[in-house]
């Protein structure tokens, strides 16, 4: 397979997954924003949305104040933000178009018609206007639907060969990164200093995170008790059955990379590195994570994961 084809498939999946994640971040932040400020903390929720999107620095280049309207516009529509939802969808569709023949008709139509639908949405004028707010909600729903369609059509229709595996690889590298980021942001930023850990604000915020990643029901099912930070972290880091957990993502990356090694007849740093990441997660307990500091753990993971991304690019995508 052409390295450029592989690169486009990999980034198609990353772009779509990122768009989905951003839509979820914006959704959950809107939810937090509806709380009385005593519950939601001192107005830092949009700040934290920017941080969990990794868009803080870029935002500051264009805006003085962090407020709902400008953050939403920046994260969702702004063309100057290379990772805005609109740009992710645009780039994902352009990746797909460049490798049209490597996709099935269904996969191509999923991304292309999603792209067309989203383009036809009117950009909401002001977030205070209920019509605008409703339209924004519809837009974000449509974005998540595109991700579902693209993912589902690939899963249902693509041959299980390197083309499919590159989309899976992009999907899980991006997903692992997103999960880690959302955990980190919560731990460091949201809680007002006056609030006790485990208090109502804390509860609401952790629940919001679970909601953002569609994991609240899963949480209730697995733990059968109130939302506790260490259990949320357990769910999103160590649980092998949770399809967003770092452990699950690493397991999938190892599986896909092993497929490459088998079919291509050789393995490299990416395989060894992914296996190492998985082993570490398998041999860690939540207690160890919290003793060493969740922030430290998550930061190390994000670095590790982006190193894996670089190794994948080096091994398969660049030459």
């Amino acid at each position: 397979m052409l390295a450029r084809t592989a690169d486009n498939l990999y980034w198609l999946a990353r772009n779509i997954e990122r768009a989905d994640y951003l839509a979820r971040i914006v959704n959950v932040t809107r939810r937090l924003d509806t709380l009385p400020s005593a519950y939601s903390g001192p107005g830092t929720e949009w700040e934290s949305a920017l941080l969990s999107a990794g868009a803080s620095e870029r935002f500051d280049e264009f805006h003085q104040n962090v407020d709902a309207a400008s953050v939403i516009d920046f994260l969702v529509f702004d063309e100057r933000n290379p990772s805005s939802i609109a740009n992710c969808i645009e780039n994902g569709r352009s990746n797909a178009r460049a490798v049209r023949t490597a996709l099935t008709v269904e996969s191509w139509e999923a991304i292309n018609s999603g792209w067309l639908d989203l383009k036809s949405f009117q950009k909401p004028r002001s977030p205070g206007d209920p019509a605008s707010s409703e339209r924004l909600g519809q837009y974000l729903d449509a974005v998540m639907k595109v991700a579902l369609d693209v993912d589902g059509s690939a899963y249902r229709t693509m041959l299980r060969n390197d083309a499919f595996w590159f989309t899976r690889l992009g999907h899980f590298v991006e997903r692992a990164d997103n999960t880690a980021r959302i955990l980190d942001v919560k731990y460091n930023l949201l809680l007002p200093s006056s609030e006790p850990v485990g208090g109502p604000v804390d509860y609401f915020q952790w629940a919001a995170i679970l909601r953002a990643v569609s994991a609240l029901t899963a949480y209730n099912w697995l733990y059968k008790e109130g939302v506790k930070p260490w259990l949320v972290a357990d769910l999103l880091i160590l649980r092998p059955e949770m399809p967003r957990s770092l452990r699950f993502c690493c397991g999938e990356m190892v599986r896909v990379l092993d497929s490459f090694a088998r079919v291509y007849g050789q393995q490299g740093p990416a395989q060894r590195h992914a296996r190492h990441m998985l082993t570490r997660l398998e041999n860690t307990t939540m207690k160890e994570v919290f003793n060493g500091g969740l922030h430290e753990f998550v930061t190390a993971f994000i670095e590790d994961n982006s190193k894996l991304g670089a190794e994948i690019a080096e091994q398969y995508l660049l030459d």
Binding site: L2, A3, D319
Partner: peptide, 24 residues
């Protein structure tokens, strides 16, 4: 056959190669 763009090809010692996931 592969659909290539110019950047997918390289020339070394007067031989044309395409860049693939398994090398040139």
């Amino acid at each position: 056959i592969e659909l290539v763009e110019g950047r997918d090809l390289l020339v070394r010692d007067d031989i044309v190669y395409m860049r693939t996931t398994q090398g040139p």
